[in-house]
Nucleic acid binder design. Structure first.
Lengths: 352, 352
DNA sequence: CACTCACGTGGATACGTTTTCAAGCATCTC
DNA sequence: GAGATGCTTGAAAACGTATCCACGTGAGTG
């Protein structure tokens, strides 16, 4: 356990002032001679600038925060990998938090990041605009990924991004939306859901159900739009985010409405639950019920039959979000919508 | 974007010195009167101590680092969730890195953590003892999880933990092992593998293959021991860690040795590959080939037939590792071995 | 030659906290 | 009542860095 060399040591050994060393190492101006000497000495002493001093001086911790609901959900694993890849190539650290989908925990983690002076954050939000107010107020650069905070009753944090995305969705923006500089990187849920519903319709399905979870608001809206009015409300059910509640929702749906012939699962946890519930109830896929799952995860191919999915680029989503949050110096970046793709495997069949 | 109150502001507003404020907030001694006043003022100013100042003063960043090979691997997702849960309850941040199983990236990330003065680290190591030397030398408190660095040729970093675990495995410790204070939290691979092999043997299987990946050294050793000599070396194959190479290894194994009747996959990525490769080659599970997979992941139950697995408590593993690394004040914690459980589902059948 | 200008340089300062140290004060003991 | 003892307190010194500012030196310009 040897103590590390400081900038002062380098300065003394090189016979220059600390300011010069700092300049050389941060790419400032210096004469070629001194630059070379400083670099040589720094290399010889194995000097590594301490992030502690720099952080305090600049009153901000480098890198970025990342808040996801659950790393056990493969999609968020993909998203995290994307963020980490971008951060790594930039040499920046990322401090991670798992919210469990709980706004309270999310608020705690935001507080923790604030305390750490982490001023850049990528989040899959669970709480509403009120939860996010402290972060915005503190001047954090926030980028939402995958979803947005639940729509606030009055103009607030997520409004700008929501306006962005509703415009991109082709919907008219909420009237009271006042921009508040929170961009987002999300998948084109509307197109993804619409394509899936059309595909199922093409197979002859009339009674199509939607199995949703927290944060699937845009997907539900897209589903309603794709199905067209009037929507059979009993066919739109929700879990709370846990695997258990997802299973309960799926099982309840199948039992209460044996007449349904197709299900769109809003996420891979829900898709998993649907498969399990169907099996438990002796419903064969796709013979008795067709299934389309949001998220393409490696194990979708393992099911038998392999699952037809709406693929969204989780890794890219994370990478793009990280890029946005890193490049956002002062200005507000534009929101990004990534394409989805319907990957047809074997979990959908003709309506009988 | 309002500037946050500093300890100085609180001190002035309360009419005391900064030292007193610091003491009150860190639980030091103070008269009840002043304590109350300071707390009141701090609350009123919404004062949150800055981690930056504290970190610099203490020359160490709080929290811990976490290095895993791949968050897309559900098992590491579980492990990370465990770490995060423990860290959250302690109010500590965790900075995450994904190594991709590449020692070079791992070394880079270690360097980054060193620069951040993160002095506690939980890692699923990919590199060898040499990769880990810088961290140890810098005085980091390291706890390995799930696996250990590859056995060094001479005494080095992982030696102590390896000695610990070989002893726990009932094997004689390596002769040259010199303790170097790197504890580990791992599953009881030996018992897990042995149980699986015995189970397969009990079903009549003679030619059992092992499909391994990087870091599965202990599992391979256990497999060799359980199978007994002489081991048919063609039945022990390895992938490099990626899904592609896992698939190639599995496919190659099935094609080169059509006489094998059972496979033990050393991890869930390899199990996934085995299922896909078997399907591609028209091998039916468990009719043509029986399969046991290490790691119990949610989707194991989705396969048909559902996969028989050796479950290891990924979440507990992470939680325990985080506990160890947090409680390790100066002394070296003892390594921990967690139990495994053979969960019998439907992917193994009698040998035909 | 004098004057300006640009540039390389180093001293000093600030960032927000913890911790040491000595001083102040009240209480206790002989 | 004098000395000793214990507790509370605030001033000050770090921690390692980035940056402001002033100084010096050289070249360029009139």
């Amino acid at each position: 356990m040897e103590k590390r060399a400081t900038i002062k040591d380098v300065a003394e050994a090189a016979g220059v002032g600390v300011a010069t060393v700092s300049r050389v190492l941060s790419g400032g101006s210096a004469s070629p001679a001194t630059r070379e000497r400083v670099l040589a000495v720094a290399a010889q002493l194995d000097y590594r600038p301490s992030a502690l001093g720099r952080n305090l001086r600049q009153r901000r911790t480098g890198g970025m925060g990342l808040l996801v609901p659950d790393l056990t959900d493969t999609f968020y694993g993909q998203l995290a990998e994307g963020v980490l890849a971008c951060a790594r190539s930039a040499g920046e650290p990322v401090v991670l938090g798992s919210t469990g989908g709980d706004p309270e925990q999310e608020a705690d983690l935001i507080g923790m990041l604030l305390e750490q002076s982490v001023d850049r954050l990528i989040a899959v939000p669970s709480g509403d605009a009120e939860t996010w107010a402290p972060a915005i107020r503190a001047g954090m650069t926030v980028v939402f990924a995958d979803r947005l905070p639940v729509q606030p009753s009055h103009d607030d944090a997520g409004a700008a991004a929501i306006a962005d995305l509703m415009a991109l969705d082709g919907l008219s923006p909420a009237p009271k939306a006042r921009p508040l500089d929170v961009p987002a990187v999300v998948a084109d849920d509307r197109a993804g859901i619409r394509t899936a519903v059309r595909y199922l319709r093409g197979l002859g399905h009339k009674r199509i159900a939607f199995l949703g979870g927290p944060g699937h608001d845009r997907r539900v809206a897209a589903f309603r739009e794709a199905v067209g009015s009037p929507v059979d409300e009993e066919l739109v059910v929700f879990g709370t985010g846990s695997r258990d509640s997802a299973y309960a929702a799926a099982s309840g749906l199948f039992q209460s409405r044996p007449d349904l012939s197709a299900v769109v699962a809003g996420g891979n946890v829900l898709g998993e639950a649907a498969v399990l519930a169907a099996r438990e109830l002796d419903l064969r896929v796709p013979r008795d019920v067709s299934l389309v799952m949001y998220d393409d995860v490696p194990w979708a191919e393992l099911c038998s039959p392999p699952l037809t999915v709406i693929a969204q680029p989780g890794r890219d989503m994370g990478y793009r979000a990280a890029e946005l949050v890193l490049r956002a110096v002062g200005r507000r970046p534009r929101s990004v919508v990534l394409p989805t793709e319907l990957i047809i495997r074997g979990s959908c069949g003709p309506h009988r």
